[in-house]
Nucleic acid binder design. Structure first.
Lengths: 236, 236
DNA sequence: CGATTCTTTTCTGTATACAACTTGTATTTT
DNA sequence: AAAATACAAGTTGTATACAGAAAAGAATCG
């Protein structure tokens, strides 16, 4: 029942992280210090410290004398993402297979349980968060301080990319998500068996699946409907 | 001639970074807020923001209700380092060869000039900082936001490892450092030519050189002198 | 003496007040 | 009427003061 400043600070942090990962706070959004400090019962001093930390982790961008912003996503970052992700995740899973402890493996299984539950009944946000948690545990397992900064940065945008491209309720999506779930199970098995090579291969497969999904979304089948005359409309 | 708070803050940041990279502030050192804020004419509020940011970049460790500490280095991190470094640096140089701009290439040449100058006449600290600058520019060139967090984290410990293991004035060291300088030249050439494969290969070579150097330091040739009776000495 | 508890001191974390900067608006000038 | 300037409101950055937690020291008890 601790409702002291320390817990409120942690709450704020969690709130911002979740909001950013789920796109409730969209890339580029300005954050209002006064409003947030009011809402969480914190003064601006600790609030700004949270901003600084989140900026360090890649959630926010800070510009002097201007408000903090949710970090941007552009098409160039999408390209950079798929350049870096397979390599880093391959290394992470390889190390996870080497180093995972019993406790961590149980954490991973719990995360996968939650992911499956979210697939069944949850919202897109629940799925993205559960998926994020799953991969976060694999990052912990790798236990390499030099890989984690980039991996965590990748996970942020992985969640946001997922929220952007897996949103529509289509047959493809459900299929791909259950395929993702199957891959998660395989990843758990590979880690539990300490099978590095399998883990690394699964990392690659997992990204190929993501990329295929996005390509389908970005380049849909063409509409087969003749155009009418468009109404006049002023540009914003 | 701006001597306002903003520049003092930047000064403090630079001071801490340089001090940590050169081991003037050793891993595990406690930082005194009162003393630092006094020395740089800043109140504790902006000072603590700097701490948070440096912690995010991997220079410091923050623990609640305890003083900020220079981030630790252990033998396990040394192992983690050489697991991650070749992979990340290989990717960085590959992307650098793809994306480097004219301006960046000039920056890199300037950095290499400074490095050579430091080799000739500078201290170990100068060399480490110049080398750090060189690699930092390659990181800029890669232009990949997902790779840079890990790469920057690697560069911090690269400088500190260098300060630890290249310190003694030996024939080997000078030789290896000029070899490093030659590799830098080759890296510049590969980037300028846009030769990805060569750049990636050079990244690997560069780490092999580092690793050899450390192995030599950790496992020196055995002394060929019969032991006498050691003098009594108290452990610190 | 040694250990333990209590007090004092020091340092970390937070709140508030103030200063500096940005930006939007209104007024003046051409 | 358009542009430029000056003003005003709002927001960010910093300093100081205070509250709370560790650490250090003194006093008490075994």
């Amino acid at each position: 029942m601790k409702d002291d400043a320390k817990s409120r600070k942690a709450e704020l942090m969690e709130h911002l992280k979740v909001s950013i990962l789920t796109l409730r706070l969209q890339p580029g959004t300005d954050l209002d210090e006064a409003h947030l400090s009011d809402a969480f019962g914190l003064s601006r001093t600790p609030l700004r410290e949270v901003f600084r930390q989140l900026a360090g982790e890649g959630y926010l961008d800070l510009r002097t004398n201007r408000s903090a912003r949710v970090s941007e996503m552009s098409y160039t970052t999408l390209r950079d993402f798929f350049l870096a992700a397979p390599m880093v995740y391959g290394a992470v899973l390889r190390l996870a297979a080497q180093n995972a402890t019993r406790t961590q493996i149980n954490d991973l299984k719990d995360a996968q349980q939650a992911f499956k539950a979210a697939l069944q009944s949850g919202s897109a946000e629940d799925r993205a968060l559960a998926n994020n948690r799953f991969h976060d545990v694999t990052g912990e397992m790798s236990g390499n301080v030099y890989l984690r900064p980039s991996f965590n940065r990748l996970l942020i945008d992985h969640a946001r990319i997922g929220m952007t491209f897996y949103r529509p309720q289509s047959g493809h999506k459900t299929e791909n998500l259950s395929e993702a779930s199957r891959q998660h199970d395989a990843i758990i098995a590979a880690i539990e068996a300490g099978d590095e090579a399998a883990a690394a291969q699964l990392a690659e497969d997992h990204w190929n699946l993501s990329r295929d999904q996005i390509e389908l979304f970005v380049m849909p089948a063409a509409l087969d409907i003749p155009m009418g005359i468009p109404p006049l409309s002023k540009p914003a």
